[in-house]
Structure formats: structure tokens, C-alpha cells
Nucleic acid binder design. Structure first.
Length: 863
RNA sequence: GCGGAUGUGGCGGAAUUGGUAGACGCGCUGGCUUCAGGUGCCAGUGGCCUUACGGCCGUGGAGGUUCGAGUCCUCUCAUCCGCACCA
């Protein structure tokens, strides 16, 4: 019998239209719907132009969950939107003389079509972009709300300033300390900016991490470390030599007050008030401070910069050691934002302090001993000793372990009024001001008389003006002829609008809540939000492990305070998927090449790439994240046009565990496509013959039927835990089993089991390859659409093994197999083991020293 | 620099979380089929030794714990991600 090949190009749009016409994926969120709600969400895309394979992978995973849960009887909410504000739109506007708005919406239109061609089960009626005025207007309402509840404030903060372009630069736009366009040396400038008080929630955000039991441990750990709660002491060091300083003491924060006897210097931030004050009369110090400002604002830059200090000529008294004075330095590695902006340096027990001490020839005094040799301090050369130990030569702390010694140090100093215990957080408040056009305007007005005044709610939304130009650098809102001019909402006199817009992280901190009621007149409808939130399963990249997820957690709390909902944790289940990577071709001076520009083939066991245009050989480079700059991207459109969406979806799920990187290879895509055809062939071959057969009786317990139920059980478990690659491996095995049934020698029972098996197969692949599944379902004469079917139930008796094979080890090495009933107890297994020829041979008449029997697992005979 | 991860055949990876290492797929080898194919089917495929039976070695590297380690511990090497104005 010949069967045609399955043609996805014809079938996929057809089934998409069928789903569309039936409005199959719209969520019914009316209150009288008794189905259990399930909210699955993938991180929404930035509309950069076209979708990439990373999107295909991300949205396929979410779609599998959505389709599976729908089949399991849940009312599934699976929406899509666009994280549409941001810098690239302005860059495009500058480069291509277009407008950020038209650039963004055109990209959205393209990408929407691309996503639709993937056959995702999304409720498109809920779609919005964060740059829709209907969305950011609601965001402005919330901002005013937060302002009212004292969750927002203004303070000075540093920005990267390009003195040539006269504009603020993002960290990304600073390359080796220079502006990316002008090439000018970047300066730091202080601006008054808006901040969310996320630090008010530091403790709560930290403690609540414990309850996020459906989050990956690594993300929870990263968030904990980011919040960085540390217990320590604020310690005062009275000045001995304090010329030119108003204060009589220097206050520092330390988490290791136990090591005070090892202190040999003090270091304060270059921006510390004392340092700034002294710089007024000290040009060298002033120059040093300016030099420190050049390092940049990013943490990585500051901490990798070579340690530099400036001796301020001051000294302070050591609080424990009578007569000892410590010199005070301004240093580039001390952060003004953390603690008090001052530390005491204990070089023996802190690596940064040690590096600094070696550079400036300061004392290194070890005051910690290992528990093994508790009397002699460890010797410190180039590596500081930071582990727990026993304090020595440390007055009241001597002989105590770290934690105990810390308490003692605080207690003793506190009695003398020199210290108090303090809890410090690494977390800083969230600066949300951006000096840019393409973002949500901050709805406040600056009035000469009234100061900073919130815009009236009835005047919202504060809409971005369309008539702006990007021919010169800087924020177009600042130079707009009229937009800024508004009456003061308080006194009515002429005033000026705030021209800063919001960080795009604000937009993405609550979009999941808006999807529940995307057209509501307020940001949310609390009853609906409370019913649908938190998101049951959130899926996205690990790169968002800290900022986006932490900001959203803060936002949920702030929104609760504002009465927008009563949910504090926005994401119940979190899954972080890996990247799509691909081989790179070229460079070493010749530039990068796209796979489509090359002929890549195997020659003499080596893969060789040559240019299609001139035959020149191009080196094959490393496997890296797909990126435009390396030109190692694969366009999903082309893949879908060649193989169909199901092949792309299947491949993205099949090869690697979903949380790891997956390498795109043509061979892999072809393999996935062969499987698509194989399933179709299997179904098409049998569909005629099986049409007449009744479904199996319960008494039918042949092997095919047992494997069907075993597979069904396993696949359900795999999908529940998002083990898509494992589910797929099982489906491959299952297809191998079903394919082994041959028409010529199959009896009636086998055919009946096969009929059931094929139906189960099609339902199992439906979440991953929905179009093929519909086509197969139709061919098999299934009722309705497979997308509408309930998930098949497995029969627990059939899914159970009658007999299991246990490995028998002798001295830890496998020597035999033993077939036993899965219910066999230890004694039965041991008895059967001792009967085995191999065991008898190895024992050679002796009694074994030990027999370890782990039922259902293993037997180990120790001779 | 700090924080987080990863490392298993020629390749992607599996291993019920301390219990048969290499499931499944790709690739490769041999055979068959075919109207063409980058099609389909069958068999084989970690390394070394062995005619065979079988044996030894093997999860980045070095140690350790255990009846038993890819999995736990210590050290070490390599690669990747995040670091607060990229999204």
C-alpha cells in the first residue's frame, strides 16, 4: 500500500483556521465557569523584528503545557503580548530615519504572523503591547497610586554621561569607558531620579523565597544572594588625626567584627562625604576621586578594576587596642551605596583587603586559627583566610568560633557605645527614571511654586507625543516645543512635565496581571486577578532569574498595597529554559557567515564549510548563542516553510533537557521531520484496516496494550514535570513498538490493541505537534478535533510490570540478571539469587559476607 | 571581582535522585528494497583484549566516603549565564 507524504504546508494553515473558526483557545473567564483555572505564561517577547529559534523553543514549551492542561480539563489562560518599549526602537529611529512607534508596531505585526504560523494555542483576543497607550496609561495610574502609598521617592543617583552627545548612556552603550557613538570618555553625573522602595520589602522578599517550592533552586539561591541579607555591626572609630574633618568619628559596617584585632587600615568610598570634603582643599585627592568616577557605574567594572587607594592623612583609634591608630584611605573598591560607605580593612581575612594591603605595604595580622591547631594563627601570604576558625590574640574574642566571637565583639563594643548590631541588605532601591523617549512617561509635573506634583488622575494617560525627531542625540521630550508645558495640577500656574520615562522593567512587572482583564478600566479587576493569579507556570530564560522576577515580586506586593489584587507572589511555578545555540562560521578576520551562505559537508571525516558564492573555505567556529552579530541564526520562517511548524516544535523539544542549551543542527531538524512522516505513515497504513475493529475488551492484555498504558502513564508524568525530551524519547520507543506489529501476522486482539495504541499515540503527540495530530485524528476517523479531546486515562493494572529484571552484583560488579515478580520480598529475592549458577560459582561453597537486597533495584553479594 | 550553573560515546543527551552507565535521537558501517532521492526496512555501533565464552577499563582531572558513586564530600581545570540603564 502506498501512502502520500504528509504535507505540512497544506495541512498546518488549514488546521490553524479550523481552530480559529471554533475559537478553541479563548479562555472563558466568567465567574460561573466551574472548571479549574490554569494560567500558563511564557515571558513575552521584545518586538525586535523577527522571531528567533529561542522564541520557538520558549513558546512551544508553554504551548505543550497549555494543550496538555486543557486536555486534562482545566480552563487554561494562555495569552501573548509585547514588551514593546525600549532602546532598540530609538536606535532604529536614529539609524533608519523611522519612528520608534511605527518601527515597533511593524515588528509586532511581522512577529505576530510568525508566531501564528507556529500553531500556538494562544488566546489572541487578549493581546496588547506595553507601548499601547491603554496599557501604559494604566501603569501611570499605578505609579500615582504607589506615590500615594509612599512606595516611590526621588533622590540623586549617578548616570553615565556622554559629554559630546550630551546624553545619558546605558551601561551597554559604554564601551571601554567611552560612548558608543561619540567615542568620548564617559563621565558620571548626578541626576535627581525616581526610585521604587523595593528595599522596604527586602526581608519579606527574602523570606518568601522559601515558599516558592515550584521554582528552580538555583534561581532562589541567586535571588537570596542578590538581596544579600547580612548581619553585622556598625562600628565607630574615633578620629585621632582628624584635620579638616567635621565628624569626630568614622562609622563603618562590618560583617566580621570578630576580626577587629587584625584590622590595619580604614577605607572609605571615594564618594564618601569625608573624602569629598577633604578634596575641596586637596587637588590630588580631587583628581583621585575623578579618576574613580571614570571606572563606570557597573558593578563588574568597579570590582574588576585594580584596587587603588589614596592616603587621606587621617587616623582613627582602634577600639580594642590601646594606642593603636589605623590610617584612613579613600579606596575605589568601597561602595558608597552599601553599608556606611566605609570599612575597616582586615587583610588576613578578606581578599580585597589583602590585595589592597599588599599594594600599599600595610600590616597583615592573622587572628584566626584552624580548629586543628587552635593556638597558632594561620599564615597568610597571597590568599586571605576567610573560613570559620578559632580567634586568637583577640582579647575578649580569643578562643571563640566565628559566630560566637561576632556576638562578643558586638556586645563588648556596644557597652562602650562604639557599636550596634545591624542587618544590612545588598539590595538597592530600584531606580526607574530613564532619560529617553520610548517609554512610559512618568506622570508628574514640576511647578516652581508647588514643587513635584502628581498629575491628576483624570488627566491620564500622559500620552507620548508622536511629533518627535531623532536627528540629534538626547531625549526628544526635552526639546519638544509644547509637550512639556502644562498647568500645575495643584495651583494651575504654568508648569513643566517630567520628561523622564520609566524603566522598561516596570512594564514587564505587571503585564501578567493585565492579561486577566486586558481591557478593564483600571489596571486590574481585583476579583478576577485573585482568581487567576498567581501564574501557575511561567516559562522564560535564566537571564531574567534576578531582576525581572524580583521586580515582579515587588510589584505584586506594591499592587496589593494599592488594592489592585491580593496576590503577593506572581509566579507559582517557574521554569527557566536554555538557549538555542548554533555553530559559527568565519571570522579570524574574514567576518561571520550565515549557514545559508555556505555549503557545509563532510570530507575525509572532517566537516568543511565553503562559501557558495566563491568557493572559499571558511573556518567552522564554536557553538554559541544564536545572535545577529555572529550571524549564526536560523530563521524560523524558513524552517517552517521547509518542514512545517510541527517539525520545528518537535526538534526544539526533543534533543536537550528543556533547561539546558539546545544546539540547532540541520541533521536534527531532518531527523524530526522524518519522524513526522513516520507517524503519518504508521497511521495512514492502518487507518483503513482498523476502521472496522472494535476497541479492546478489558480482558485484552497483550503486550501492545500493556505498553500503551505504561507509556501513557510515563508521558503524563514527564509532561507534568516539563521533561519534554524524556516524553519524546518514550514516544519514539512507543512508535517503534507499534511499528513492529505487522498486518500479516497480527491477530484480532493485536489489531484492537493497535487501534487503541494509535489513538493514544496521536493524543500524546498532540500537545507537541498539534497539526499532524489533527491530520492523523481525522484519518483515523476520530470524533471532533483531537485538540478538543480529554487526555486519555491509563489503566494502572495494565501499566504495571508482571516481572522485573534485577541486576545481580558480586562485589559491586554486575554478573547476572534475575527475573522476579515486582512484589517479591527481600528473602525471596535473596533465596533466588543464591540459586543462580553464576553466584554459586563465585561463592565456591563459601558463605557470602553480606548480601544487600534492594527490592525492585539491585542485589549485591559481597564475597 | 562577586553570585549562579554546566562538564557522560564521533555528536545531542538518558540514568526512577546512591543501585545494570550510554535509553532515545543524530551520525557512521554493512545488507536489503526502490521509479529517483537527502526515501523505506533489517543488523551493528564506548574503548581495549579474546576464534568464542568472557574479561578489563570507562561519566573533565586528582583524592575521599560507601557493599555500591555519573550522582555525595574535598581540591582542581574548562566553559557558559547574571551583576542593578540590554531586554
Amino acid at each position: 500500500m502506498t501512502t502520500d507524504r504528509y504535507n505540512p504546508r497544506e495541512a498546518e494553515p488549514r488546521w490553524q483556521k479550523v481552530w480559529d473558526d471554533k475559537d478553541l483557545y479563548a479562555s472563558n473567564t466568567t465567574p460561573d465557569n466551574e472548571k479549574q483555572p490554569y494560567y500558563v505564561l511564557e515571558m513575552f517577547p521584545y518586538p525586535s523584528g523577527r522571531i528567533h529559534m529561542g522564541h520557538v523553543r520558549n513558546y512551544t514549551m508553554g504551548d505543550v503545557v497549555a494543550r496538555y492542561k486543557r486536555a486534562k480539563g482545566f480552563e487554561v489562560l494562555h495569552p501573548m503580548g509585547w514588551d514593546a518599549f525600549g532602546m532598540p526602537a530609538e536606535n532604529a529611529a536614529m539609524k533608519n530615519k523611522t519612528h520608534p512607534k511605527s518601527w515597533t508596531y511593524e515588528n509586532i505585526a511581522t512577529m505576530r504572523d510568525q508566531l501564528k504560523s507556529m500553531g500556538l494555542s494562544i488566546d489572541w483576543s487578549r493581546e496588547f503591547a506595553t507601548c499601547d497607550v491603554e496599557y501604559y496609561g494604566q501603569q501611570q495610574k499605578m505609579f500615582l497610586d504607589f506615590l500615594k502609598h509612599d512606595l516611590v521617592y526621588r533622590k540623586n543617583a549617578k548616570v553615565n554621561w556622554d559629554p559630546v552627545d550630551m546624553t545619558v548612556l546605558a551601561n551597554e552603550q559604554v564601551i571601554d569607558g567611552k560612548g558608543w557613538r561619540s567615542g568620548a570618555e564617559v563621565e558620571q553625573r548626578e541626576l535627581t531620579q525616581w526610585f521604587f522602595k523595593i528595599t522596604d520589602f527586602a526581608d519579606e522578599l527574602l523570606q518568601a523565597i522559601d515558599e516558592l517550592d515550584e521554582w528552580p533552586d538555583k534561581v532562589k539561591l541567586m535571588q537570596s544572594n542578590w538581596i544579600g541579607r547580612s548581619r553585622g555591626a556598625k562600628i565607630s572609630f574615633p578620629f585621632v588625626k582628624g584635620d579638616g574633618v567635621k565628624e569626630d568619628k568614622l562609622v563603618c559596617f562590618s560583617t566580621r567584627p570578630d576580626t577587629l584585632y587584625g584590622a590595619s587600615f580604614m577605607a572609605i568610598a571615594a564618594e564618601h562625604p569625608i573624602s569629598l570634603e577633604l578634596a575641596k582643599n586637596n587637588p590630588k585627592l580631587d583628581a583621585f576621586i575623578k579618576e574613580c568616577r571614570k571606572i563606570g557605574t557597573s558593578a563588574a567594572d568597579i570590582e574588576t578594576a585594580e584596587k587603588q587607594g589614596f592616603d587621606l592623612g587621617l587616623t582613627v583609634a582602634h577600639p580594642f587596642i590601646e594606642g593603636k591608630e589605623l590610617p584612613v584611605y579613600a579606596a575605589n573598591f568601597v561602595l558608597m551605596d552599601y553599608g556606611t560607605g566605609a570599612v575597616f580593612g582586615c587583610p588576613a581575612h578578606d581578599q580585597r583587603d589583602l590585595d589592597f594591603a599588599r599594594k600599599y605595604a600595610l600590616e597583615v595580622t592573622s587572628v584566626v586559627a584552624t580548629p586543628e591547631a587552635p593556638d597558632t594563627p594561620v599564615e597568610v601570604a597571597d590568599i586571605a583566610y576567610v573560613d570559620d576558625g578559632v580567634l586568637v590574640n583577640s582579647g575578649p574574642m580569643s578562643g571563640k568560633r566565628k559566630d560566637d566571637a561576632i556576638n562578643t565583639a558586638i556586645d563588648v563594643l556596644a557597652e562602650r557605645g562604639l557599636a550596634e548590631e545591624e542587618i544590612n541588605f545588598r539590595l538597592r532601591d530600584w531606580g526607574l527614571s530613564r532619560q529617553r523617549y520610548w517609554g512610559c512617561p512618568i506622570p508628574v509635573v514640576h511647578c516652581d511654586d508647588c514643587g513635584v506634583v502628581p498629575e491628576k488622575e483624570e488627566n491620564l494617560p500622559v500620552e507620548l507625543p508622536d511629533d518627535v525627531t531623532f536627528d540629534v542625540p538626547g531625549n526628544p521630550l526635552d526639546r519638544h516645543p509644547t509637550w512639556r508645558d502644562v498647568p500645575c495640577p495643584s495651583c494651575g500656574k504654568p508648569a513643566k512635565r517630567e520628561t523622564d520615562t520609566m524603566d522598561t522593567f516596570v512594564d514587564s512587572s505587571w503585564y501578567f496581571a493585565r492579561f486577566v482583564t486586558p481591557t478593564a478600566e483600571n489596571p486590574t479587576i481585583p476579583e478576577a486577578a485573585n482568581k487567576w493569579l498567581p501564574v501557575d507556570q511561567y516559562i522564560g530564560g535564566i537571564e531574567h532569574a534576578i531582576l525581572h522576577l524580583l521586580y515582579s515580586r515587588f510589584f505584586a506586593r506594591a499592587m496589593s498595597i494599592g488594592g489592585h489584587m491580593d496576590i503577593k507572589e506572581p509566579f507559582k511555578g517557574l521554569f527557566t529554559q536554555g538557549m538555542v545555540v548554533h555553530e559559527t562560521y568565519g571570522s579570524q578576520g574574514m567576518g561571520w557567515f550565515q549557514p545559508s551562505e555556505l555549503d557545509i559537508r563532510e570530507a575525509d571525516g572532517k566537516r568543511v564549510a565553503t562559501r557558495l558564492d566563491n568557493g572559499e573555505e571558511v573556518p567552522i567556529g564554536g557553538i554559541e548563542k544564536m545572535s545577529k552579530s555572529k550571524r549564526n541564526t536560523v530563521d524560523p520562517d524558513e524552517i517552517i516553510a521547509t518542514y512545517g511548524a510541527d517539525t520545528a516544535r518537535w526538534f526544539m523539544l526533543s534533543d536537550s533537557p528543556p533547561d539546558r542549551d539546545v544546539e540547532w543542527t540541520d541533521a536534527g531538524a531532518e531527523g524530526a521531520h522524518r519522524f513526522v512522516q513516520r507517524v503519518w505513515r504508521l497511521v495512514a497504513t492502518w487507518s483503513g484496516e482498523l476502521a472496522k475493529i472494535d476497541l479492546p475488551e478489558t480482558s485484552n492484555t497483550n503486550d501492545v496494550r500493556k505498553i500503551t498504558h505504561k507509556t501513557l502513564k510515563a508521558i503524563g508524568e514527564d509532561i507534568e514535570r516539563l521533561g519534554f525530551n524524556r516524553a519524546i524519547a518514550r514516544i519514539y520507543e512507543y512508535v517503534n513498538t507499534l511499528s513492529s506489529v505487522k498486518a500479516d501476522d497480527a491477530d484480532a486482539e493485536q489489531k484492537a490493541a493497535l487501534k487503541e495504541g494509535l489513538s493514544v499515540l496521536v493524543q500524546c503527540i498532540a500537545p507537541m505537534m498539534p497539526h499532524l495530530a489533527e491530520q492523523c485524528w481525522e484519518a483515523m476517523g476520530g470524533k471532533g478535533l483531537v485538540s478538543e479531546q480529554a487526555w486519555p486515562q491509563f489503566n494502572a493494572d495494565l501499566a504495571k510490570d508482571d516481572v522485573i529484571t534485577m541486576p545481580i552484583q558480586i562485589n559491586g560488579k554486575k554478573r547476572a540478571d534475575l527475573e522476579v515478580s515486582p512484589d517479591a520480598n527481600k528473602d525471596e529475592i535473596e533465596a533466588a539469587t543464591l540459586q543462580l549458577d553464576v553466584v554459586v560459582k563465585y561463592l565456591d561453597g563459601k558463605t557470602p559476607k553480606k548480601i544487600i537486597v534492594v527490592p525492585k533495584r539491585i542485589v549485591n553479594v559481597v564475597v
